[in-house]
Design a protein around this nucleic acid. Structure first.
Ligand code: FES
Ligand code: FES
Lengths: 146, 146
DNA sequence: AGGAAGACCGAGTAATTTAGTCAACTATGC
DNA sequence: GCATAGTTGACTAAATTACTCGGTCTTCCT
């Protein structure tokens, strides 16, 4: 899994966008101002998110970005994977190129562990939407006693 | 969260150790041989794990390492945090030094999200023991319908 | 006693990744 | 037609990571 600051910034920006998108488009300059980030850097992030279909853009004066889908339907997992590219948790990446730990053809003992870990993170982030973050509604497992 | 290759190597080595420790101590040279890692690198990893009390060492000929506790009681979370040091998921690290995203005194909207994400990963890794990995017994949540 | 096995330690380096910048281009609205 | 704002791609600087090296200290065996 990645979880780099790049992904964090993307989520911050998207949350900001979700919170200030009342009908009109929001310019990167606005977001940069509010979140204390450089416009140039945000451009990079939004370019990727646009390609993934998370946001739509409008050029020219009064232009900017807006969410492609309502905040309730856009998950954190989508945002993170959009900017951080691959979500590889295993070392071999699923390929059996025998580069790393995979020798002879059998996967190493830890392979399944990392794969499952990646799935675990993915599942959690996919269960949280931008709207959840905005409202502070984070799902904490009911904690079945202890 | 970290999840670096360093942590992965540590888990590989520990799993190997757990699988080959029948009474006698296991030397790093053996592990290096089996897992295709350099002895020098393993020394680094085991030094930290020893300080955390995960393994015990014996010097001199016939010496080596062995698990401090049975494989069932040593979790992956312990191994990973031993070699990867801090498990900080948030950008601010909990401190309100106002360095990063924390401005004015209020935590940014995403703060809780990352904190919860970190907890999620931690919880999962803490639920898996070396013995589980060795036996391929990885807990997959029962998946409550869908 | 002495030599070899093997843990122990700290500094140091090389490679990779990440974060962030810049300049030039294109479309749009007034 | 000019200002606004997104689009693109290459480029650099900083940080982190992975990994090595030289040397020391202990213990066992002969
Ligand atoms: S992680 Fe895939 S074979 Fe080791
Ligand atoms: S992550 Fe802690 S304030 Fe933003």
């Amino acid at each position: 899994m990645k979880l780099s600051t790049k992904g964090r910034y993307a989520v911050m920006a998207m949350t900001d966008l979700a919170g200030h998108a009342d009908r009109r488009a929001v310019s990167l300059a606005e977001i940069a101002e509010r979140q204390q980030l450089s416009v140039a850097y945000l451009e990079q992030l939004f370019a990727r998110m646009r390609r993934r279909g998370l946001v739509v853009s409008a050029r020219g004066p009064g232009g900017g970005y807006r969410l492609a889908r309502p905040a309730e339907e856009t998950t954190i997992a989508e945002v993170v994977t959009a900017v951080d590219e691959p979500l590889r948790a295993t070392r071999c990446g699923g390929k059996d190129g025998a580069i790393g730990c995979m020798r002879g053809g059998a996967r190493c003992l830890t392979h399944d562990l990392w794969e499952e870990t990646g799935r675990q993170i993915q599942d959690y982030l996919a269960s949280v939407s931008l709207a959840d973050v905005l409202s502070g509604h984070l799902r904490r497992e009911p904690a079945v006693a202890a």
